[in-house]
Amino acid sequence: MVEGLNLALDQAMAADDRVLVMGEDVARTGGVFRVTAGLLDKYGDDRVIDTPLAEAGIVGTAIGMAVYGLLPVIEIQFDTFVYPGFEQIVVHAARYAWRTRGEVPASIVVRIPFGGGVRAPELHSDSPEALFAHVPGLKVVCPSTPEDARDMLLAAIEHPDPVIFMEPKRIYRAGRQDFPEEPPFDISSADGVTTDYLSKARIARSGHDLALISYGATVPACMEAAERLSSERGVDARVVDLRSLYPLDVDTLVDAATACGRAVVVHEAPRTAGLGAEVSSLIHERAMLDLEAPVGRVTGFDVPFPQFINEDDYIPSVDRILAGCNKVLDW
């Protein structure tokens, strides 16, 4: 996935000179996860910028650049580090279109490596996506494959609205995927096309007995759970990768729930008021009569993300996902 993200940045910067990358340690070291590696040499320090260590300043100055007409892509080094920039995102980035008659949206991308599972120090493993999904004016997305990472980041950069781009760091380097290197759309005339990449869920596995709905790093876990359901119970699970966390692709969700009659939502973020609550609610509102059981949730707990020795107790494992599925199947 890191290569996919790097490719997207490279292709966007090559095709559109309004695009620039900024953040802590993004230039000389290429980012702590190397997502921006090689860009400094190619595009220079006016377009690949190591900033002072100040997230409100990074988001805030990027908003000013966007008002000028540039397309800044910000890297927040780790999930929890975004909180000092939260005010700038919520009050300003999210409302710029609203406060300018829709004419000057804050066209920024805020890339946030998020979630646990990499044995990181304390306060490096949060999943804050629901906080952003709750803020009107933002788009919130999360890829789970290298190809989606490339395509969705390209779309996010060219998209007029501010995009919170959640990057599941646990699968940054999990598995390779061959995909056409060519950009999926013409970067120089992306108007209107970008929304498609930032609003549609993906069917990661087809099936008709149970809908497993997730995003980010728990998608591969759901795929594994689906294989085990197939071999252990003969249950054919459909896996839906949300990709867009705001807005949710309601049609794909309702189709899956209607076709399967049973659904389980899986995410790593804490349960209460998480994305799972919204997904579950949408399905119950729109497909109640097609359901054989209430929608289940397998999530993190309502606790601070633990120290890493215990992180596997927190993160939804394949076994926990299977247990959640069995509960819904046996309801």
């Binding site: 409100a56 300043g57 988001v59 805030g60 100055t61 990027a62 908003i63 000013g64 650049m65 966007a66 008002v67 000028y68 007409g69 540039l70 005010e87 700038q88 009050v91 300003h92 710029y96 609203w98 406060r99 300018t100 008659r101 004419e103 000057v104």
Partner: peptide
């Protein structure tokens, strides 16, 4: 509201001081 690019006047800032980084970002970009 207005289009700030028309007058080169940003929307007024209601929270205290949070528009200062925007002023910096724009001038820096220019």
């Amino acid at each position: 509201f207005w289009n700030p690019r028309t007058y080169r006047v940003a929307p007024i800032c209601i929270p205290i001081g949070t528009h200062l980084p925007h002023a910096v970002g724009l001038a820096w970009a220019a």
